[in-house]
């Protein structure tokens, strides 16, 4: 545990965890019932990790991933990512933080449908202010890296599900984020395509050192992870390397 008392841990190189989560809890209120989605989650994630957050449906994986991705806020707890206390950030600052530090791969609807594969990858770079020629060069490089050379001009509806997920991987990595958060990336893919996607992400993790945290209950994804975090009833009940 490296969390500092004031929640503003400093970046001290690779010895400091990339993510430090302490007692994160999140409750959802519907009309008559209260659902405890997270119930005091504690864990650290190191730089360069390739971790899979596993658990049954409803165990809290997506809720935790949303909070780690600053897409949602916990009701209580502390969260430090890349040396920043992200829970103190405003909505606009969180959007900026995601832009500068995070990459995302979602289960579906990952791409902007009116943009080509190249433009989808370059979108985040454009928001970051990268010059046009440079961002297109980077996009093409990453599309080639994920095996989509020659498909750069295709729109999402002209790509298969696996190809769309590869574009999402390329986009997530093109901006060289501190961490890539993937929520059930293989859920809509057949087992062969899902396995290929996991192998691709793991290869990129090993080659580039990018940190991955993948929420999935797919055995293929769980097998591919270097580290497994098991969730049950809103808690991480087990964390081990494999």
């Amino acid at each position: 545990m490296n969390a500092s008392d004031n929640g503003t841990a400093s970046m001290e190189g690779w010895d400091s965890p990339l993510i430090q989560a302490r007692d994160l809890s999140r409750h959802f209120h519907s009309s008559q019932v209260e659902v405890v989605a997270l119930d005091g989650v504690n864990f650290d994630l190191q730089h360069g990790a390739f971790s899979v957050l596993a658990g049954r449906s409803g165990s809290g994986k997506t809720t935790l991933l949303n909070i780690l991705g600053t897409l949602d806020m916990p009701d209580a707890g502390a969260l430090n990512i890349s040396g920043r206390d992200v829970l103190k950030l405003s909505t606009a600052e969180r959007a900026d933080f995601r832009l500068m530090h995070m990459g995302f791969i979602f289960q579906a609807y990952n791409l902007i449908r009116v943009l080509s594969a190249r433009e989808n990858v370059a979108y985040v770079l454009q928001l970051r202010g990268v010059a046009r020629d440079e961002r297109l060069r980077i996009a093409d490089t990453w599309l080639a890296e994920v095996g989509l050379e020659g498909l750069e001009s295709r729109r999402p509806d002209q790509l298969s599900g696996g190809q769309q997920q590869r574009v999402a991987v390329a986009r997530a990595l093109a901006s060289e984020p501190d961490i890539v958060l993937a929520d059930e990336p293989t859920a809509n893919l057949d087992s062969h395509t899902g396995e290929a996607l996991m192998q691709l992400m793991r290869a990129l993790n090993e080659k580039r050192g990018t940190t991955f945290l993948i929420a999935s209950h797919d055995p293929v994804a769980m097998d591919a992870g270097k580290e497994l975090l098991m969730m049950e009833d809103g808690r991480i009940v087990e964390q081990h390397r494999q």
């Binding site: 897409l71 909505t91 959007a95 995601r98 995302f104 609807y109 902007i112 985040v124 928001l127």
Partner: peptide
């Protein structure tokens, strides 16, 4: 709506 959610997740600000 989903696309706007995606854009927001990727770091597109509310004003953008």
């Amino acid at each position: 709506i989903r696309e706007f959610g995606l854009m927001g997740a990727l770091g597109t600000g509310a004003m953008q």
